[in-house]
Design a protein around this nucleic acid. Structure first.
Lengths: 118, 118
DNA sequence: TCCAACGTTCGACGTTCGTCAAGGGATTCT
DNA sequence: AGAATCCCTTGACGAACGTCGAACGTTGGA
């Protein structure tokens, strides 16, 4: 039986020794894996790149949805995954919600899986 | 209906402009997402870190399985995911298969998702 | 006040994933 | 040749995932 993945808060940037610094314990591996999984979908990678192209103003759901050719409900779902992984932040302005990337979180994830870091 | 993810060869290190270099097309996003998904599992992150700790000699399946407390069949499955993503390489020596990490592939993946790169 | 636009949540669906037991192929040793 | 060890593949099962339509909550104007 597949052991159920525990629910963990990963909204803060990842913080543990790099993957190449020695054998990693299960908790740290879980934190890294959950964040990687949040980005492990082609739609979310594309959304992330669109947000990184507008880091200041952000982009709203209604503009993202047609760009990836999916329903707003689906895009909202993907944005939640990214937000729960701390990779994105949404702020409401009028009826719109503008999503902006959180480069620090992405950078931290990078540093942890970089084989050159230890 | 979830559009079926096409089958793509990702055994070579990822090669496309970074995620922060501008809006990314769907094909590049797919290549990145598939590689991230290969690493988006706690067991595989742990396996990767064990292999990175023994980059020269490698580690065989029979030593990895008890270390992550899973059956050899399951570990073999995970190693295949990593191998198909080019993150790992296995070479047979006698009855054993020794797996070694492929830091270049991991480094390339890092570079592509790093928000500082463009 | 009512309406329209935007965004999220919910329920349902088919697919993909992680896991194991069982079985099969290699390789080595006796 | 036979036996033992290692590893992979297959088949099966439940859990998690991606997607949509529909319903719901907010906000800002007529």
């Amino acid at each position: 039986m597949p052991k159920a993945l525990p629910t963990v808060d990963i909204t803060d940037p990842v913080c543990c020794s790099p993957i190449a610094a020695g054998v990693m314990d299960a908790d740290d591996a879980l934190g890294i894996a959950l964040r990687l999984k949040a980005l492990g979908d082609p739609v979310r990678v594309q959304l992330m790149s669109m947000l990184l192209a507008e880091p200041e103003t952000g982009v709203c759901t209604c503009d993202l949805a047609p760009a990836v050719d999916l329903s707003e409900a689906t895009v909202s779902h993907h944005l939640r995954q990214l937000r729960e992984a701390g990779l994105v932040e949404g702020t409401r302005k009028g009826t719109n919600v503008y999503y902006r990337p959180q480069p620090d979180a992405l950078e931290a994830l990078c540093r942890v899986i970089d084989p050159r870091c230890r």
